[in-house]
C-alpha cells in the first residue's frame, strides 16, 4: 500500500484579481467589502492583486496551470498587455470571472468602438484643446535611446469584452458590481456547487422588480418627450421614467438594489441585459421608443431626437457586446 499524498501545508484556495481597461471602480468594490475583506483573506490566499499587493507577473507565471481557484478580471481589453494577462490568468485559473460591466460587456470604455484607433490617437495626442504637441509625438510601442529600450503595450483596433478574448466562466455585472454581489459570488465559488458556465451572477429579472419606485409607474405610460437627468427636477418618490427621464431599469438586470433610482438618478443600464436578451441596446431602444406618445411621423421624429445620443444612451455599457459591434463570432456563425 502506498501512503496517501501529503496534505498540502496551505489548503486555502488561491484567488487573483486583475484590472484591464477600467477606471478602478471595480477594485473599489473589493475594498468596499470593508471588514468582510478580512473574512475573504481568511478563506483564500490572494496570489495576485496589482492594485493592493506587490505580486508580479512572473509570480503568476510561476504558478502551476489551473492552480488558482478563481481569477476576477475587471476592465475591457484594449491593449496587448491586457490580452496577455487575460490569457495568463485564464491558464492559471480554474474559474475566470469577468468582474464588472467593462469585462462583461465592454463597458464605458467600449464606446471607443464608435471611433477608429487612429481617430482616438489623433484626438488624444493632437487635437484635444488642452494638448500641445507641435512635433506630433505619438506613443511608441518600442523606443530606443543610448542602447536602452522602453516598450509600451500596443493598442488594438477595438475594445473587447473579456469573453471576446478568452473563455469566461462567470460574469459579475455592474459599474461597479456591488460588494454584496461580489461577496455572494465568492461564497458561491467557495461553496463548490458551481452554477452552469456562462451564468451571470445576478438575478435574471429586470431592475423594476427591486426598484422602490416601481408602484408609481402608471400602467399606461407614454411619453411626448425624453429628458436627460440634468434637464429635469426629478421627484424623489416617483418612477423616473414616468417623469420623462430615460431610465433603463426595465431593460437592465437587477441585483444592484436600484442604487441609482435610490440616489434619484435614472438607471443607465450597467448591469446589462437579462439572459433572454441578445442585444441590450436594441431591446432598451425598442422598449423606450415603443412608448412614444405619437402616431405622427414628424412628431415621432421630433420626440426620437429628444434622446440626443441614442448609441451612448442605449449602448453605454455594452457596445462591444452588441450584435453589430461584437467581435466574438459564435459557433453557429463559424459553422455556417
Amino acid at each position: 500500500m502506498t501512503k496517501p499524498a501529503a496534505v498540502p501545508k496551505n489548503p486555502k484556495p488561491k484567488v487573483a484579481f486583475y484590472w484591464c481597461a477600467s477606471c478602478g471602480g471595480c477594485e473599489e468594490t473589493v475594498l468596499d467589502l470593508d471588514e468582510r475583506v478580512l473574512d475573504v483573506v481568511a478563506a483564500v490566499d490572494i496570489v495576485f492583486w496589482p492594485v493592493a499587493l506587490d505580486f508580479k507577473r512572473h509570480d503568476v507565471e510561476a504558478l502551476p496551470d489551473g492552480s488558482i481557484l478563481a481569477a476576477f478580471v475587471n476592465g475591457a481589453v484594449r491593449t496587448t498587455e491586457q490580452e496577455e494577462m487575460a490569457h495568463l490568468l485564464r491558464k492559471k485559473a480554474k474559474v475566470l470571472v469577468a468582474l464588472g460591466s467593462c469585462a462583461q460587456l465592454g463597458g464605458i470604455a467600449g464606446l471607443a468602438n464608435l471611433s477608429s484607433r487612429e481617430g482616438i490617437l489623433q484626438s488624444s495626442y493632437c487635437e484635444s484643446p488642452s494638448t500641445v504637441n507641435a512635433e506630433k509625438v505619438f506613443p511608441q510601442t518600442l523606443y530606443k535611446e543610448n542602447g536602452y529600450s522602453v516598450s509600451l503595450p500596443g493598442l488594438f483596433e477595438t475594445v473587447c469584452s473579456l469573453d471576446q478574448v478568452v473563455d469566461v466562466d462567470y460574469y459579475l455585472p455592474g459599474c461597479p458590481p456591488t460588494p454584496k454581489l461580489l461577496w455572494d459570488a465568492v461564497h458561491v465559488l467557495l461553496g463548490g456547487e458551481l452554477p452552469p458556465k456562462g451564468t451571470v451572477l445576478a438575478p435574471d429579472r429586470a431592475l423594476c422588480e427591486e426598484c422602490p419606485r416601481k408602484d408609481t409607474r402608471p400602467e399606461k405610460l407614454t411619453l411626448k418627450e425624453f429628458k436627460r437627468p440634468q434637464d429635469a427636477v426629478i421627484d424623489e418618490a416617483t418612477c423616473v421614467l414616468a417623469q420623462g427621464v430615460v431610465c433603463l431599469g426595465p431593460a437592465t438586470r437587477s441585483g444592484c438594489e436600484a442604487l441609482c433610482p435610490q440616489g434619484n438618478m435614472p438607471c443607465t443600464g450597467c448591469f446589462g441585459p437579462t439572459s433572454r436578451v441578445r442585444d441590450y441596446g436594441a431591446k432598451a431602444l425598442s422598449a423606450i421608443s415603443s412608448i412614444i406618445d405619437s402616431n405622427d411621423p414628424e412628431e415621432i421624429e421630433k420626440i426620437v431626437h429628444t434622446v440626443p445620443d441614442p448609441v451612448g444612451t442605449f449602448y453605454r455599457y455594452s457596445l462591444p457586446a452588441s450584435l453589430l459591434r461584437r467581435k466574438k463570432i459564435d459557433e453557429a456563425l463559424k459553422t455556417k
Binding site: C208, E209, R217, K220, G249, P250, T274, S290, I291
Partner: peptide
C-alpha cells in the same frame, strides 16, 4: 408572460 422573469415594468401594457 414568463411570470418568473417579468419585472413588472409595465412597458407592454399601453402597447
Amino acid at each position: 408572460i414568463l411570470e418568473e422573469e417579468c419585472s413588472g415594468c409595465k412597458t407592454c401594457i399601453p402597447l
